Amino acid sequence: MAATKYSQSIKNDSRLFLATALLELLQNTNLEDIKISKLVERAGVSRMAFYRNFETVGDVLKDYFEPKINRLFDDVIFKTPVNQKMFAISNFFTEFDSTMKLSIDRHFEYIIRQIFFNNMQRFYQSLDDINQIPESNRRYWIGFMSAGVYNIWREWFLNDKRDSLDDVHKLLGTLQTTTFNAMLER
């Protein structure tokens, strides 16, 4: 049992060292230009330690960011009153501000976008009224809204946050309500 805990501890340490090293390398290098050999050297771990945990360098980022984003959405989904859920998602926008910039600049935005998209789907599937939308349209509406929320957030960010976050929330609320009602009318 002790050997198992010890080996799990080493595995977790290796993953943390790789994530830390990768985030450091990303300060000056695009994701696609970071080689595994450079990453393991920076992290102080072996190539075997890398391959025991990951297949690609992008997997390191997914492993690092996914639990953080999942926790933020868990708070919104399970701990936030219904009338404050969309506003609570702003925590994601503000907390991941620097990550968004880095992901765009260093070409790993697709990883953040997919994790966000998966969590927005969880968020919409958790809404009490979601079952009012016919099953045949529900997944399309959830996909549409999930992608839309991400793209609005991205545009807001890329435009130097010129609009207030409150205005963005109102826009999202309007789009969500309008499209939700349109699905009910079908």
Score class of each variant (00 low, 15 high):
D74N: 09
F123M: 03
M48Q: 14
S9D: 12
G148H: 00
K62M: 06
I34D: 06
I36F: 13
N53R: 13
N53Q: 13
M183R: 05
Y64Q: 01
F93A: 02
L165E: 02
A2H: 06
M145S: 12
N118L: 08
K170C: 03
S136H: 07
D59A: 07
A3I: 06
K62D: 07
S136I: 13
I142Y: 00
Q125D: 13
R42T: 15
K161C: 15
N151L: 04
N83P: 00
T20F: 11
R113D: 12
R52D: 03
L158S: 12
N131M: 09
S9W: 08
I69P: 10
D160T: 14
R122D: 03
N181A: 09
A21R: 05
L175F: 02
L61P: 04
N159K: 14
Y51E: 13
L26F: 03
E95I: 05
F78L: 07
F73G: 09
E32R: 10
I89E: 00
G44Q: 10
V45W: 06
V40A: 08
T56R: 11
V40M: 14
R139N: 13
A49W: 05
R122V: 04
T174M: 00
F116T: 02
T99V: 06
L18I: 10
R162C: 00
N30K: 00
F78W: 00
K11Y: 09
I34K: 06
S90V: 00
I133L: 04
N118A: 13
Q8A: 14
